[in-house]
Design a binder for these strands. Structure first.
Lengths: 183, 183
DNA sequence: GGTAAAATGTAGCACTCGCTACATACCAAA
DNA sequence: TTTGGTATGTAGCGAGTGCTACATTTTACC
């Protein structure tokens, strides 16, 4: 054999990215052990071996995905602060409308749904992600904004409402809602 | 037998309410035929008999639930039009924060998630419900509102964003977002 | 080189899933 | 009384679920 140490390369760090891709493509609720294992090039037996049980696996996977999402947000926002609140909202929305972000949005609504249903683990994930997004928003408000903290909360509400309307294929409605806003 | 015609009482009209209760309590994605049948006092065999297959059953169930939701909204909004946009938003939010409405909200986010994932049937349901909610909002705007149509779209965006934050247990954030809004 | 630990394959458990086949009932019209 | 549509129970199929037992191979270390 040319590569003798190939085996030991399989650890959590190598399994998580592959499984994250699978979850982004096929959803979280449909993520069962055998397909997950197949996507990571291993077996259900090994996933249990590495993560203990499915619940812990999903928790670690959500952590990993949250970081990946934050990184994607940062990368796509562009350089420099926006000049107005309206520009800030538009930059976020046009960023999250990109095809690459679509799987993240789908996953996000799945988490919100699980959270509303009270499923264990989803609440923590959703809260952590919301707070991360909020603090990120505060840091990316216009430089001369009179109330960056309150404004960030207002924009977060608007953005999430608008993204929900986009999720249900009401993009025209979402646009009109922002036009009629007093931004 | 005392009651000879008992059998024929079991039809779609009697099955749907019971199944709707079950879905509101346990979610849509976990709604499998046998538990649904049990909640309606019949068997999976009979559900297929009445509805053809599961897909058609879910479609009819979503229709039924949409009407039930609209009725609940109407009932809880109170009499008379609100005086201001802010009052309008607050009446909607306080109405949907009631415990009775919680199952409806959970179901709604489940539909949004399925819609974002592109699952067949969810898109139509979500669109119909959104449009129903929008026209309802237009009819319940303040009497002297300068732009009821655009305003309704704006308020819908705000309300949905706020409800999402409530769903992920960020009610404080949701409140602060509305306070900082320019309503 | 020997050995303990880590990793992996195969097989299987008990369960749920949507759905179907088959055998009945029941009741009304012909 | 026969016929035919409606309604129901029982049993089962094939697939998939999380998870485990057991045996085997590979790796790392002394």
């Amino acid at each position: 054999m040319v590569s003798a140490a190939k085996r030991s390369e399989m650890s959590k760090d190598t399994l998580l990215p592959a499984m994250a891709d699978h979850v982004l493509a096929h959803g979280l609720s449909q993520a069962s052990l055998r397909p997950l294992a197949k996507s990571a090039g291993t077996s259900d037996r090994m996933l249990i071996y590495h993560f203990g049980n499915k619940e812990k696996l999903i928790a670690e996977l959500l952590d990993y995905l949250a970081e990946k999402y934050a990184a994607a947000l940062d990368q796509g926002f562009g350089d420099g602060l926006p000049m107005t609140r309206k520009e800030c909202v538009q930059r976020i929305l046009s960023q999250s409308a990109k095809p690459d972000m679509q799987p993240f949005m789908a996953l996000w609504w799945e988490i919100v749904a699980g959270c509303a249903r009270g499923i264990a683990g989803y609440g923590e994930a959703a809260q952590a992600m919301t707070e991360k997004l909020l603090s990120w928003l505060e840091a990316h408000m216009p430089a001369d904004d009179p109330d960056p903290q309150g404004g960030a909360r207002y924009l977060l509400t608007l953005v999430e409402g608008s993204q929900m309307l986009s999720a249900v294929r009401q993009t025209r409605l979402a646009r009109e809602g922002l036009v009629a806003s007093t931004l």
